[in-house]
Amino acid sequence: MEYTQLGRTGLKVSRLVLGTMNFGPQTEEAESHVIMDAALDAGLNFFDTANVYGWGENKGRTESIIGNWFAKGGDRRDKVVIATKVFGGMNAEGKPWPNEDRLSALNIRRAVEASLKRLQTDHIDLYQFHHIDRRTPFEEIWQAIDVLVQQGKILYAGSSNFPGYKIAQANEMAARRGTLGLVSEQCLYNLAERRAEMEVIPAAQEYGLGVIPWSPLHGGLLGGVIKKENEGGRRASGRSAAALADTAVRAQIQSYEDLLAEHGIEPGEAALAWLLAQPGITGPIVGPRTLDQLKSALRAVELELGEELLTSLDEIFPGPGPSPEAFAW
């Protein structure tokens, strides 16, 4: 497994991130433990979760599954860099009482204690703000985080789904307080969705943040969805099905799959390898439901895409271009 630094920290993390959002909702606990063991055996040491994963009445279930895996021993906890998130309300009905969601100092304090209990650990390596909170000033957020760092309950703070200007605001306020600030940003970024290249990734690079892309297969759209349909396999559903109903999108995905077929490369593995080849990227989040899906993702780390193929992929999925040229009318 290839490793890199997490932004401007001293943490060494694998270049793939094990996303655990399917543990509980789609993958039972026993199978989830098998997947985590296989990931660790393969050298994948960076696990990502969130306090709301499990969803609905089962919010927190995913963290509990990870905590039970840690409790098995074998130095599992010591070998893993664990990242979780705070923002969403934990009320099962989705109607939180005041201060039971978002990024108030009170909710951050409550949420981190609850996550530590579910994860069965004494500290969280990377504590991420799941979304921006326009109601809470960064002065209050950083004051709460600084206390948690001093208490040893978290090591670093990161953001998720932040626009570029909020990354700047957050880190400028941290600098005025004399603290480290954000060390990572988790954003939507893949071949089919490249708007992060306009502001988010440049801001992250300017402030020394690692970039952790989520949805690297764009909801399955980049995972060989048309090929699977033609072979009688799992059909596209949800957003992927809606996207493929657009003839232009379907033609684009068909061109993508045809190109990779010519090179004998699986589409999902190519999408991950493309992300790994982009500047500023720490590692994409993969969310396997099965052991086979994990094995496929691991193969992408060894896959090198040649310049000609990278150029062809850019032609099929053109990015916005460098800033500020990308904003030109």
Rank of each mutant, 00 (worst) to 15 (best):
I124V: 09
P137M: 07
Y127D: 01
K153C: 02
D122I: 03
H130I: 11
D146W: 14
I141E: 08
L126G: 07
Q128P: 02
V147A: 15
I132E: 09
T121L: 08
R135E: 05
I132N: 13
D125M: 06
H131K: 11
A144R: 08
W142G: 03
P137G: 08
D125W: 03
D122G: 10
P137K: 12
H131I: 06
I124N: 03
D122C: 06
T121M: 07
L148E: 07
Q143K: 15
R135V: 04
R134G: 03
Q128N: 07
H131F: 15
H123P: 00
P137Q: 07
R135H: 09
T136S: 04
H123V: 00
Y127C: 02
L126V: 12
F138L: 14
T121G: 03
E139S: 12
V149N: 01
L148D: 00
E139M: 10
I132H: 14
Y127N: 02
D146P: 00
R134W: 07
I124M: 05
E140N: 02
F129D: 01
F129C: 10
L126W: 13
D146T: 15
H131C: 10
D125E: 06
Q143V: 04
R134F: 09
G152D: 00
G152Y: 00
L126K: 10
F129G: 02
D122L: 08
H131T: 04
T121Y: 10
T121E: 03
V149W: 01
R134I: 04
F138S: 07
I141K: 15
Y127S: 02
W142H: 11
T136C: 06
I145D: 02
H130W: 11
